[in-house]
Amino acid sequence: MARTRTPVVAGWFTDDVQAEDGSGERGFRLLGTRCTACGSVFFPREDAYCRNPHCAGDELVEVPLSPRGTVWSYTDGRYRPPAPYVSDPAVPWEPYTLVAVELAAERMVVLGQAAPGVTVADLAVGMTVEVVPGVLDEDAGGVRTTWHFRPVPEASGPQARTARESS
């Protein structure tokens, strides 16, 4: 029996957003909200009020965030974080990488873990990365899913894809 897959937080991401390339594919995206009055975007989502001090808007709609951004900064966790981070104390700690990613359209920076295997040596400020589905932790009860960032492979950048499609 397949184990249940549960988002670590409900409503922060989905794998069911229409791809931007017109391919008809459904893709993984972070989900924010946008104020219908002033256009401010929020992630994590604000659903009840707009935090723009000049706006009294209280109607916010869900919007997928840009699938790609550029690295604002990055670091790693060489020591096991405390709870509520979930890790098995019986297993030696494996450092993971954190990436802060600047989204151009939203003009905001979003933090996330890098995909497994991506180390600080693989990253540079300004590098293009994309958001991908990931697993945060799992146990007998099921899998908790999350978002990860990973460098965009050279060959699958937008230009490379265009070249492929036109050939």
Partner: peptide, 13 residues
């Protein structure tokens, strides 16, 4: 970006 936030505010609007 500042702790404890996961993202900054958006400067889009």
């Amino acid at each position: 970006l500042d702790l404890p936030d996961i993202a900054t505010d958006s400067a889009a609007a």
